[in-house]
Amino acid sequence: MIGHTACVGGSVSADIVLNNLKNIERKPQNLVKALRVAQEVKGYLPAEVVEAAAKHVGVPYSRAFNVATFYHLFSIEPLGKYRVFVCMGTTCYLKGNKENLQYLKSLLNIKEGQHTSSDGLFTVEEMRCLGCCSHAPVIAVYMPNGARKVIGRATPEVIQKLIDELRKEARERGWVK
């Protein structure tokens, strides 16, 4: 487990993740499915959680780690409460998401090479194609409750409004001051 983050922060313990895995049939082919559930419940995949998923479906930790570090949906590092994806697919790139990404990162004060804001609320990632290219540029927010909000025709104004709303929600829930 060298180099793999141990469980930090977060209100969800590995037990709760295990509880959610119960509905998944114990067979190796369900590894990706188990990690998806774990990622959703825990918010990221610390070593204990990957190990729990591996045990559950009956594969070695090494293989689970191999899979957990391959797919974009998975993160072995803690992420912000809100995961903001900026689509960099052809159409979104052409229609201004390069500028939107820069704007969003400066708005949240996220430096080059970093992804998460210092208050731990937002993680900004690039992704490719949400399939709403007609309304490019598109950004998507994965909310803490697992819901996904897709926003078409994004502009700096739209992004500013979105972030303000999410910050307000976070304050109301007591995640930040």
Partner: peptide, 20 residues
């Protein structure tokens, strides 16, 4: 779980089998 290669026909089989 998100990867461009996943749409490739044999890579997709690997993912259904629970691998990269």
């Amino acid at each position: 779980a998100g990867r461009y290669t996943s749409g490739e026909e044999t890579a997709l089989l690997e993912e259904i089998e629970g691998k990269r």
